[in-house]
Design a protein around this nucleic acid. Structure first.
Length: 256
DNA sequence: ATGGCGCGCGCAGCGCGA
């Protein structure tokens, strides 16, 4: 089994890239973020023609998440239970007995802003939710754009980013609190690849200059961790015309 | 130097992302 996460930064703008990528990489399931699209505009027929079912939680202009799967999507849930939020950032489904929770964590804008406070509140609520999911589903995979670079090694220029949003200590502590539930950052399960970033700014040729961050993650429960086989950050789509600023990240399993 | 680039919205230029 293979599970991918990809922030497409507008599904309408990236539909061609997504379909081409799925044709070349027929993963079992993929969590998408930043659809920026209402449910009724989702290209369901084109996705189904590729052999995928879709569970979606869309929103006009901002946010929006989906899980696509080549297998049945069961027990689909949206949002964080008990956390009032207009923004569509969470969708969960069970695929072949594996619970997948797919996230688009708030960006946080700037330290001290209302959006930053919302991000930290959101991550606190997420921790409660994932604790419950972990208790219910021993086979748990959490995919998403977490908007947190967990350590300085995940930042091209740690000094320039020190204390900035995505790298601040409260954000990193909130990320570690997810791991303390018993989840593992699957990236750390393998020898660090030469290229470890998953996002590069569109400006200033950041991708070409290797100025990126690792902010897209796949967390796994202990039962899933045992089955992990490989982890891959695919930079090919980032080279295309009008790319998403994020790359797809794929975790492969032996047994699941 | 507070923008750069790319998106949606909507038809000009702004809000937002990371």
């Amino acid at each position: 089994m293979k599970i991918t996460t990809w922030n497409v930064n507008s599904l309408r703008a990236r539909q061609g890239h997504l379909l081409d990528w799925l044709k070349a990489n027929p993963v079992d399931a993929i969590g998408l973020q930043e659809l920026k699209m209402q449910d009724e505009h989702f290209p369901r027929a084109e996705i189904e023609a590729m052999g995928y079912q879709a569970a979606i939680s869309g929103q006009k202009a901002y946010n929006g998440v989906a899980i696509l799967s080549r297998h049945a999507l069961e027990d689909v849930h949206r949002d964080i239970p008990g956390f009032a939020d207009e923004q569509k950032r969470v969708i969960a489904a069970t695929v072949r007995g594996v619970r997948i929770v797919n996230l688009y964590v708030p960006n946080g804008q700037t330290i001290g802003s209302e959006k930053y406070a919302y991000k930290l509140r959101w991550l606190g609520a997420l921790r409660e939710y994932l604790g419950e999911e972990l208790a219910r589903h021993p086979q748990l995979v959490v995919t998403g754009d977490f908007n947190v670079a967990p350590t300085d090694a995940d930042v091209h220029d740690p000094l320039a980013w020190a204390g900035q949003v995505l790298c601040s200590e409260p954000e990193r502590a909130a990320f570690r609190a997810l791991l303390e539930l018993g989840l593992q950052d699957s990236f750390t399960r393998f020898p660090a690849p030469e290229q470890r970033f998953t996002w590069w700014d569109y400006r200033q040729g950041a991708f070409r200059r290797g100025r990126g961050l690792r902010i897209d993650h796949i967390l796994v429960s202990p039962e899933v961790s045992k089955e992990c086989q490989s982890f891959h950050i695919d930079t090919v789509p980032r080279e295309l015309e009008r790319p998403s600023d994020h790359t797809p990240v794929t975790l492969s399993f032996r047994g699941l």
